[in-house]
Amino acid sequence: MNHVAAIQMTSGPDVEANLERAAELIADATTAGAGLVLLPECFAALGAKALASVAAAEYDGRGPIRRFLAEQARLHGIWLLGGSIPLPRQADGKARASCLVVDPAGEEVARYDKLHLFDVEVADGHRSYRESKDYQHGDQPVCVDTPVGRVGLSICYDVRFPELYQQLCRDGAGLIVVPSAFTRVTGAAHWEVLLRARAIENQCYVLAANQSGQHPGGRETFGHSCLIDPWGEIVDLLAEGEGIVCGAIDPQHIQNIRERMPVARHRRFAVADQVVPAAKES
C-alpha cells in the first residue's frame, strides 16, 4: 500500500472523453500496484469554454466528475487524488481550482483550493494566462492522512512558492503532490528544478502529475510527470505522452535523511503558521 502513481494525460474540452481515458490510466496504475493515485490538473476539462457550467454541475456532489472519482476509488480500492476540478464553495459562487481526496470507500475526505493563480505572460501559442478570470484563490494549506503517510496538497503554480511547502512539512507531510498543467515553455525552463528543490529543501517525496502535449487554444504542456525522493533523486519519470509513473514511499528514508541533515531544526527564518487569505474577489 506504500506505492503511489501519477497519471499523465492530454486532456481536452470533452469531459466524457477525458474521464474515459482517465479510467484506463487509473486501471494501469492500480495494476502496477499503486494504492494512491494522482490525476493531473484539469484532468476532466482543459480548454472547456463552458467552465462555469462544469463547475456548477459539480457543486452538490452529483456531477459527473465527482461521481467518477468516487466510483473509481471504490472500484479499485485506492486513494484517488483528483488533480483539480472547477468547484465553487457556494452554489452561485466563483469556481475554485480544487483538488479532492477520495478514500477507497468513495468518500471525499479532503479538499484543497489552489492558493496561487497563474496570471502570467508566456512565449507560447496561448501567450496570456489569466486564471483569476475564471477562478477564485483558495485560502489555506491542506494535509491529509493516508496509508502512505501524511500528504500535503498543492496545484501547479503553487510550486513556485516555497513557503507553502515549508508549511505543509511543518504540518507533517512526508509526501507532497503537485497535479499540474505546466506549459511546455515554462516546464522546459523550470519544472524539474522546482520539483527537485521542493523535495530537497523539505526532505520529502514529491509526486507530480502533469498534462502533456497539444491542447485547444494553442496551449502546449510539458509532461515529465515524476516521483522524486527526499534526496532529490528522480525515482520515475514519463517525459511525453499519456501514461503513468509509479514508485514506493519509504518513511524510513525520509527519517534517515532528516536525522542526518536536520534542516528543519536549523531553519532560522520560520514560515507563518497560516497563509494570509487572498483579498475577497467580486
Rank of each mutant, 00 (worst) to 15 (best):
T10V: 12
G12L: 08
D14E: 05
V15E: 03
E16P: 15
N18I: 00
E20H: 15
E20L: 15
E20S: 15
R21S: 08
A27P: 10
A27H: 09
A29R: 11
T31Q: 11
G35P: 06
L36M: 05
V37R: 00
L39G: 01
E41N: 14
C42K: 09
C42R: 13
F43T: 07
F43N: 07
L46M: 07
A48N: 02
S53F: 02
A56R: 00
A57T: 00
D60L: 01
G61F: 04
R62Q: 10
P64G: 06
P64T: 06
P64D: 00
R66D: 06
L69I: 01
E71F: 03
L75Q: 13
I78H: 11
I78R: 09
I78E: 05
W79K: 08
G82E: 03
P86Q: 00
D92G: 05
A95N: 06
S98F: 05
L100A: 12
P104R: 09
A105G: 09
V109H: 05
K114G: 04
L115E: 08
L115P: 14
V120K: 06
V120W: 03
V122Y: 10
V122A: 05
A123L: 11
R127E: 10
Y129P: 02
R130M: 14
R130V: 15
E131G: 10
K133P: 04
D134T: 10
G138I: 02
D139K: 11
P141E: 07
V142W: 00
C143T: 02
D145C: 11
G149S: 04
G149H: 04
R150M: 03
C156A: 07
Y157W: 00
V159S: 13
F161E: 10
P162S: 11
Q166S: 14
Q166G: 13
Q166Y: 15
Q166K: 12
Q167K: 13
L168Y: 01
R170H: 14
R170T: 14
R170M: 12
L175S: 05
P179V: 01
S180T: 10
S180K: 14
A181N: 13
T183H: 00
R184D: 05
R184Y: 02
W191Y: 07
E192L: 09
E192H: 14
L194E: 14
L194A: 08
L194Q: 13
L195T: 01
Q203C: 09
C204F: 02
A208V: 08
A209C: 04
G217S: 06
G217V: 08
G217E: 06
R219L: 13
T221P: 08
D229H: 02
W231E: 11
E233H: 11
I234L: 02
I234Y: 00
L237S: 07
L237I: 13
A239D: 15
G241S: 03
E242L: 05
A248W: 08
P251L: 09
Q252W: 14
Q255H: 15
N256R: 12
R258H: 06
M261A: 14
M261C: 15
V263H: 12
A264W: 10
R265S: 12
V271I: 01
A272C: 11
P277Q: 01
E281Q: 10
